[in-house]
Simulated scan of single mutants.
Amino acid sequence: MRSGEAGGDGRLAVLVLEDGRTFRGRAYGAVGETFGEAVFSTGMTGYQETLTDPSYHRQVVVMTAPHVGNTGVNDEDPESGRIWVSGYVVRDPARRPSNWRAQRSLDEELAAQGVVGISGVDTRALTRHLRERGAMRVGIFSGNAIPDEGTLLAKVRQAPEMTGADLSAEVATEEAYVVPAIGTKRFTVAAIDLGIKGMTPHRMAERGIEVHVLPATATLDEVYAVKPDGVFFSNGPGDPSTADHPVALMRGVLERSTPLFGICFGNQILGRALGFGTYKLKYGHRGINQPVQDRTTGKVEVTA
């Protein structure tokens, strides 16, 4: 939920969490107001991919790394056709981009797409607060006349919560499309789009897989019409407890014993399809520096 006018110009801005804590800063990106679930991302790079990841629909992303925007924005790295975050929080935005691939600055891109942000915030303190208190609703307000904090807090608490939100259909493709295999075709995969990132079918295609990306509302007959060697359930936003159709679809795939795999939201759908429940973590870990241990060797690798 957001509304704004283009051109964050250094005007005052305030961030208000639903527990009443506030952070003051300057407008960044579009000027106006926006609401969403406050989450933090610990990646030091990859902000453009984060912004355009449909999984962040209705979330306000806090960048823990202090310097953001150094490499600008280009037209090659987006994971979808638009920015999906509801709002953006940074500490020290780059004064000017410095990268040979940059085509424009990050704040220009945010303003052009109407994304309300705030800069000059102690994002480490905000991250620690969210780790202690948990993810919660938040509002960002900027402009010439900002109401008193009591009025802003009331607005934040009226915003919808993420719990119970059914969002995958809002971000998924409406029409099926095909990403052809690069080189010799080895397999066909039906990918259920619950909020898929553009790089996912591309990486499969690089490995000789022809990917049929299907809407979140696809039926079992539509999945098997493409004669898949495997079925993939993508990442996506929202509460998996509301995803009854994808769960029923996955159960149909399981009954046919077709190889299947998923990522993020897709893994949660698999859990539900197998009869398990899901619950919301106090706060999620978002970023590209998560340690994962290979239990067979004891080796720890840092991954997404």
Rank of each mutant, 00 (worst) to 15 (best):
G284N: 11
H67A: 09
V292Y: 06
E255V: 01
M204H: 13
T184W: 09
R157L: 06
Y279S: 13
G10W: 12
A273S: 15
P246W: 00
T71W: 12
V116Y: 07
N70M: 14
I118Q: 09
D221Q: 12
Y283G: 12
S119I: 05
R137G: 05
E132Q: 13
P160V: 01
R21Q: 13
A216I: 01
G198Y: 10
E174Y: 00
N144G: 15
T200P: 01
Q113K: 06
D229T: 05
Y88M: 11
I209N: 03
F23K: 02
G298A: 06
I196H: 13
L167N: 07
G81K: 04
E79K: 08
D92Q: 12
A111T: 06
T184V: 14
H202V: 11
P54R: 04
G271L: 12
A27E: 12
Q48N: 01
H129Y: 04
R95A: 15
E301M: 03
V300W: 02
L274I: 07
V115T: 06
F261Q: 05
E49L: 02
E79A: 14
S142R: 07
D166K: 11
V253L: 03
V138M: 06
E222V: 01
V73I: 14
W84I: 04
I288H: 10
F35M: 03
P93M: 14
E5I: 10
R256V: 02
A165T: 05
Q59F: 04
V115Q: 00
Q103P: 02
S41I: 13
D53L: 01
E222D: 10
Q268M: 10
R256F: 00
R131F: 11
L167A: 03
Y283E: 14
H202Y: 14
T242K: 13
V73H: 02
E76W: 10
T296D: 13
E206F: 04
R186S: 06
N235A: 15
G134S: 03
V231W: 08
T242H: 02
T34E: 12
N144S: 15
R96W: 12
L126G: 08
R186G: 00
D107Y: 10
I263K: 08
P93V: 11
M63E: 02
M162S: 10
A165I: 08
S257W: 06
H202P: 00
I269G: 07
G134P: 09
F35D: 00
V138W: 07
F141N: 03
C264V: 07
